[in-house]
Structures are given as structure tokens and as C-alpha cells.
Design a protein around this nucleic acid. Sequence first.
DNA 1: AGGATTGTGGGGAAAAGTGGGGAAAAAGGG
DNA 2: CCCTTTTTCCCCACTTTTCCCCACAATCCT
Lengths: 141, 141
Amino acid sequence: MFIGEYQYKVDEKGRLPLPPKFRRELKEGVVLAKGMGEKCIAVYTIREWRRVSDKLAEKALTGANLRRLTRAIHGSAFSASFDGQGRIKLPDTLRVYAGISDTAIVVGANARVELWSQQGWKAEQTVAEEQASQIIETLGA
Amino acid sequence: MFIGEYQYKVDEKGRLPLPPKFRRELKEGVVLAKGMGEKCIAVYTIREWRRVSDKLAEKALTGANLRRLTRAIHGSAFSASFDGQGRIKLPDTLRVYAGISDTAIVVGANARVELWSQQGWKAEQTVAEEQASQIIETLGA
DNA sequence: AGGATTGTGGGGAAAAGTGGGGAAAAAGGG
DNA sequence: CCCTTTTTCCCCACTTTTCCCCACAATCCT
């Protein structure tokens, strides 16, 4: 399970470190893809990528919209692995998509990890906070 | 079960002791997260955190809502463990969120522990007192 | 009163963040 | 097809941060 929020620099070679706490779970390699709906980069374990991918494939049989989404997701996906310092190389296309320049926010989101630009993350937090407090009320004690 | 109210200093390294009475129950490690709704840091046992996390999954929210909530909850969380003196390290993001600078109020809140700034705790108490009398009425005899 | 426990602080070893050089691989042009 | 140019990736190096351990003073309990 991935939790926590971290800030790292993307160096001039496009490399981004991931938190040491995440590395063990990710060390077999990761798949990078566009965040679904959000302007972020999603980082999946191989296993989780397969799960997401299968789920999409099931539903894509019927809907043209979903086929389009599937195409977008798969087309943008990229497998990556770590260097000796625990960094991965971010493909330029995904970096541009997420608006990440020289600083990235790494966010643990349970089964996956997400990469955000500072501005993007701040905006997302603002929206999420409002929504969260409502839903949390329904969780009970 | 956690009860009581304690005051500790946060040292320059961001370390905060927890009351000895709490340590045995927490010694397996804790998860820190934003207080739900309130400007405090919530401290959960691993078990309790899982309970909260599972409850989220049950909600069976769909699409963007689920992703957003997952992100908000897990992203703000942080796992921590004790040093030899019974202290934990508070992540900067959470400290800022709760407005804790060099002194923290540690409050036992049944299944979880909460960390407040002095001002925040005082304000919360004021509000709580007003509401308490009303709520107590509704409890019946 | 005395011993044990606890709050608080700090030093030092280990790990992590960040940057860059150079070999290997890939791409591109003649 | 081969040579040149560019990119990728592996390794090394430096700086900062983290974390583990020790220390001392105050407090609690017996």
C-alpha cells in the first residue's frame, strides 16, 4: 500500500527519485501512464497495471468511448525501471501531459502512485478537501 | 483505548514523544493522517488505519470521486515508528496542516490519538463545550 | 530517599537527494 | 553499410537529511 506525499526534483536528464518506502514494492519495475481523467502521471506495479488493463479490456468490447480511452491509456503507457539511486526516467510526453517541469509531487494512492506538478497537486487538493469532508461524514466512527 | 490530554515539545528535528501510556498499544507502528475535517493530525494503529481504509473501499464510489478520495486520504497519510525514547517524526506537510510549531497537544480519542497545536486545541475545546450540552440532551438517560 | 522512568537534547554513522562523467546503444546521414 | 552524432544508462561523487544511540536533568513511584 502506498501512502504519503513527497517532493522531489526532476533533474536535467528527466530522472525522478521515488520514495525509499515505495521502492521495495516497485522494484520489479513500473508502468507509467496518463492519469485517468486527471493531469497526472500514474505509476503502477506490473501486477496492478495488468489488473487495470484487463478491466479496461473487458469493458472496451462494448463501448466506443472506452475503446478510445483504452487506446489513449495504452498508447501513452511506458514501462520503466530504477537506476542505482532509485530513480526512473520520465518520458517527455508524459511530463508535458502532467505539466511537470523541474519539481514533482509524488503521491501514494493505495494501489498506485501518482506524479503531479506542484500547481496541479495544489489545485487537486483544494477540490478534494471539500469533497472528502462530505464523504467522510458517512463513514461513521 | 486512548484517553487523556498531554503536552509535549516538538524538538528541532521534528520529533514528538507520545505518552508512555499510549506506547504499548502503538508500538507496532502508527499511521499519521490529516484529521478528518479538523485541523489536527490523527494517529492510528495499523489495525485502525486498515479499518478506516477498508471502510473507504466499501463505499463503492465510482470513477473520479473514488480516485479523488483515495488520493486525499492516502496521500496525506504517513507511516511512522518510535525511536528509543518513544518519539515519532512528524512529516512537515502534516505539521503545517495542523499548525504545530514547537508544542503539541496529544489527545486520546478512543480508538485513535489526535495531535493539535495549542491554539487549535483551545479553539476546538471551546466549540466542543458549547455543543456538548446540546448533544448530551439527545443521548437520553 | 533512592531507583526507575520519562522529557529533552545532541553527536555521529548510515542512508537518501542531487548532480555529472563516460561507456554503450541507438539514431541518422552520407 | 559504415561512420558520426545523439541519446540512454550505468556508475561514481558530493551534500544533506535521517535515524539510531547516548546523555543528562527532572519527575514519578515505592
